[in-house]
């Protein structure tokens, strides 16, 4: 079971990252839980200052940019193994 967190206060790129992540999960069809983290304190607890950020199983894999679907899929695959 993948635990995925999308970090972002609700900006346009944060919403797009959430969609991309959902798509990646759907394509891989792995059990996963996607959680939106909008609270600044929680976001910053990960050391992230620039949103959107992506956390997979407690590891920050991306922040401050919008990664592509291929990248996100790659990180998810890495985390499954």
């Amino acid at each position: 079971m993948l635990n995925i967190k999308v970090l972002g206060p609700g900006c346009a790129n944060c919403k797009r990252l959430e969609q991309i992540t959902q798509k990646a999960v759907d394509t891989l069809s792995v059990p996963a839980q996607i959680e939106k983290v909008t609270d600044y304190g929680e976001i910053m607890a990960f050391g992230v200052l620039s949103t959107p950020g992506l956390v997979v199983n407690g590891q920050v894999v991306s922040y401050g940019r919008l990664p592509s679907l291929a990248e996100v899929t790659g990180w998810l695959v890495d985390s499954i193994e």
């Binding site: 206060p9 900006c11 944060c14 600044y40 976001i43 910053m44 200052l49 620039s50 949103t51 940019r65």
Partner: peptide
């Protein structure tokens, strides 16, 4: 690189 939606975490991070 900076987007205005990151202004708040940036400010807090700098202060901290």
């Amino acid at each position: 690189p900076f987007c205005s939606c990151s202004a708040v975490p940036l400010f807090i991070g700098f202060v901290e």
